[in-house]
Simulated scan of single mutants.
Amino acid sequence: MATTEQLAKQIKTLKIILGVLIVIIVIFGIKLFNTGESTATELTLQRLNIVDGNGKLRMVISNKQKQHPGIIDGKTLSKRERDAGMIFFNDDGDECGGLIYSGNKKEAGMAYSVDQFKNDQIMQLQYSQDNEDKKSKSYGFKLWDRSDDFTAGRLISHFDSLNMKEGTKAYREEVARLKAKGYLGTERLFLGRNKAGQTGLFLSDGKGRLRLKIFIDSLNRPLIQTLGEKGEVISTLNGAH
């Protein structure tokens, strides 16, 4: 039977061996992450932050629960619900676009957006569907006009100063007022399939009013329509024989 002195020596030896092993593991780990020769076959995580050489955030890949709320004028926005996907950040650290997606029994969608500098999206490739009414779906390419003066940061400050709650009548009226002035962006082009089942090119004027449609309707008829300021059809060219 080993004596107390022998047991103490064995424990001391084990501690030394364990310490050496820890140092080897640490050195190996550092080498693994600092060389381009490392490989991995699988990585499981809820969120991945990509930064540049100075540690500035450039991209976030995340699930819905941990998705980044966005950064505008260098300030991180308040936590809000956002879909899973990738969010991109520019050289100044502001959000500048992304790819988001969702899907459940009620609805499904995906969108790749390109943001205007200091503002919201000006280009978007999108798909949207109401799963309770499968005929109600749209997909295609969109373009917007946005003000260079009324930036996203200014919009946030504007509503913060008014202390309005989203969804209230006063909030909706203010949104409508800003939209009428073109401060919230104006959709100018849609190329794709709309919820009416029409597939084609749809062009709007500077106030967001649909003015020209070149499309195939749900009955497979090729049509060209011009519309007035109130949405009324002014002329129709039917390409069917």
Score class of each variant (00 low, 15 high):
residue 137 K to F: 15
residue 233 V to S: 02
residue 35 T to Y: 02
residue 66 K to Y: 02
residue 172 R to D: 15
residue 192 G to Y: 01
residue 183 Y to V: 00
residue 2 A to D: 13
residue 80 R to Q: 10
residue 56 K to G: 05
residue 230 K to V: 00
residue 26 V to I: 12
residue 123 M to L: 13
residue 240 A to T: 10
residue 145 D to S: 13
residue 102 S to N: 14
residue 53 G to I: 06
residue 209 R to A: 06
residue 32 L to F: 14
residue 182 G to W: 09
residue 78 S to M: 06
residue 76 T to F: 08
residue 183 Y to D: 12
residue 37 E to V: 02
residue 222 P to Q: 02
residue 220 N to K: 15
residue 29 G to H: 03
residue 171 Y to D: 09
residue 91 D to A: 13
residue 130 D to K: 12
residue 55 G to M: 10
residue 213 K to S: 01
residue 225 Q to F: 00
residue 179 K to I: 00
residue 47 R to D: 00
residue 32 L to W: 15
residue 217 D to A: 05
residue 85 G to M: 01
residue 238 N to S: 11
residue 63 N to I: 08
residue 123 M to D: 06
residue 90 N to E: 08
residue 215 F to P: 02
residue 138 S to T: 08
residue 6 Q to H: 06
residue 215 F to T: 03
residue 205 D to R: 08
residue 218 S to G: 05
residue 86 M to A: 06
residue 136 S to T: 13
residue 226 T to F: 04
residue 219 L to P: 02
residue 208 G to T: 08
residue 26 V to D: 04
residue 205 D to K: 07
residue 48 L to M: 14
residue 221 R to W: 11
residue 225 Q to W: 00
residue 133 D to G: 05
residue 221 R to H: 15
residue 129 Q to M: 07
residue 58 R to I: 02
residue 28 F to H: 06
residue 220 N to L: 11
residue 95 E to F: 01
residue 64 K to Q: 14
residue 190 F to R: 00
residue 141 F to C: 01
residue 142 K to R: 15
residue 77 L to E: 15
residue 172 R to K: 15
residue 153 G to Y: 04
residue 136 S to D: 15
residue 113 S to P: 01
residue 18 L to C: 11
residue 60 V to Q: 01
residue 79 K to I: 09
residue 240 A to I: 09
residue 32 L to Y: 15
residue 188 R to Y: 04
residue 56 K to E: 14
residue 145 D to Q: 12
residue 84 A to M: 06
residue 56 K to W: 05
